[in-house]
Design a protein around this nucleic acid. Structure first.
Length: 395
RNA sequence: GCGCCGUUCGGAUAGCGGCUAUUCCAGGAGACUGUAAAUCUCCGGCCCUUUGGGCAUCGCUGGUUCGAGUCCAGCACGGCGCA
């Protein structure tokens, strides 16, 4: 993998560049489409490519459980398996340790977490994962069987899946966890990063790039410390992890990116909605991934230049106009709101597909437009104009 | 004509004497940020000074009872059976 910065913004953070992978080039900043289980839900790889997406991010945890690393290997890796010929990423599975309950299974975080009512009985059911120094023990969401991930195992599985860019095994904490716990988890993530790197160098394919992940929650000192430590390690690029409160995203990203080496790409994990993209890019993020466009699409929400709409609202049943008059995606070109409203109400599979095409096109091409505005020096004008219209302010 | 059964929110249902009438679908709205999500949450008779309170309501009419969607009688409508 090779990363080149083509142009820097005057603020010293934002940049335009490109990531060259064995399966093609990603022009950054770019939105990476999420395809957790080796599929972008509801879409064929041809559809994903035709809406302009350059790369897909799959998930180690899910592909490990199903179909399993042996089959991934036998199939010739992710690209062949899912028939996607462009660049790919895999997330390490660390996020699942958080989302499947480890974060709430820890006393420190539970005590500190006064913003959420913790139902003990419910928590014990939901806590499917437990973290210790060596790794994470978890129960399969599919059949309840027990499994264990360590940084070394995550690397091995990611080697078998064989994406172009893989991530170190990390622990993602709740933003509401205590400072002490976040610090502890961060330190552990650093040790796991070292182990991920060592193991990858020892046994990994040479053409596979490994990104280290910066943690530290919303605390400035922790974020900076994490960026210092991870940034000095010999990773090919970096992920900025965490489960963010919306307001914290850009500040945390800014702290981190002032420290991370400029010559390597930075991926902001799990962000964003349209309004999140500008702040991330401005603060030096090169790539994003986010489930939002496809998930909300399947649930009937569509992005438009004037904000999100819910196509299931009564008014769209007989709206034979345009979903978003400015959108050039195939869904907007060929179908009306009334048709999508009908498909959703009739629970037809095409509903999720057409909506996903639209939302992904919207996000992927919004980032491309932002890239263009950076190249011709109109980023701030474009940002202001877009956000004003999108959030409905000043109308 | 006789007998049996049924009639509960737009549809389908639960409810078998005790006080907020159940659930599902349809309907209205909202949420969703490294995907346990084509998922989840809320609303749904009327009225009010909306924290909460008041008045209704289970085909219709009457009755029994402290109390009836629930029991009884008559009527109406529907289904099945027999003429």
């Amino acid at each position: 993998m090779k990363f080149t910065v083509e142009k820097e913004m005057e603020n010293g953070r934002g940049r335009v560049g490109k990531i060259e992978t064995p399966h093609g080039i990603i022009e950054t900043p770019a939105f990476i489409v999420v395809g957790t289980k080796a599929t972008v839900k509801g879409l064929s790889p041809e559809q994903v490519a035709s809406l302009g997406a350059e790369a897909i991010l799959a998930n180690t945890y899910h592909l490990y459980l199903e179909p399993g690393e042996e089959i991934m290997k036998k199939a010739g890796g992710l690209h062949k398996f899912m028939n996607w010929h462009g660049p790919t990423f895999t997330d390490s599975g660390g996020f699942q340790a958080f989302s499947l309950g480890a974060a709430f299974n820890n006393k420190a975080s539970k005590i500190a977490d006064r913003t959420q009512e913790v139902d003990e009985t419910q928590t014990s059911h939901e806590a499917l994962a437990k973290v210790d120094e060596e790794g994470v023990t978890f129960k399969s969401i599919i059949d309840g069987s027990s499994h264990r991930f360590t940084p070394e195992r995550s690397m091995e599985i990611q080697h078998a899946i064989d994406a172009d860019i893989i991530f170190a095994f990390d622990e993602c904490t709740s933003p509401h966890a205590s400072y002490e716990y976040q610090k502890e988890a961060m330190a552990r993530t650093h040790r796991w990063a070292e182990r991920s790197l060592d193991h990858h160098k020892k046994v990994g394919p040479k053409d596979q790039a490994l990104f280290g992940i910066v943690q530290g929650g919303r605390h400035q000192d922790l974020r900076k410390e994490s960026a210092e430590i991870i940034g000095k390690m010999d990773f090919d690029g970096f992920g900025i992890g965490g489960s963010f409160d919306k307001e914290d995203i850009y500040t945390a990203v800014g702290w981190v990116n002032d420290i991370l080496p400029k010559g390597k790409p930075r991926h902001l994990l799990g962000i964003g909605e349209p309004e999140d993209l500008f702040g991330g890019i401005e603060n030096g993020v090169d790539t994003f991934d986010c489930v939002a466009p496809t998930r909300i699409a399947r649930n009937g929400s569509l992005y438009t230049r004037k904000g999100k709409i819910n196509i299931l609202n009564a008014k769209y049943r007989e709206d034979v106009g345009k979903i978003d008059p400015l959108c050039k995606c195939s869904t907007c070109r060929d179908y009306t709101p009334a048709y999508l409203a009908h498909l959703f109400r009739a629970k037809e599979m095409q509903a999720g597909t057409l909506a996903s095409i639209h939302n992904l096109y919207f996000i992927v091409n919004l980032v491309k437009e932002i890239r263009g505005s950076m190249l011709d020096g109109t980023f701030y004008e474009f940002k202001e104009r877009f956000l004003k219209e999108y959030t409905g302010e000043g109308e």
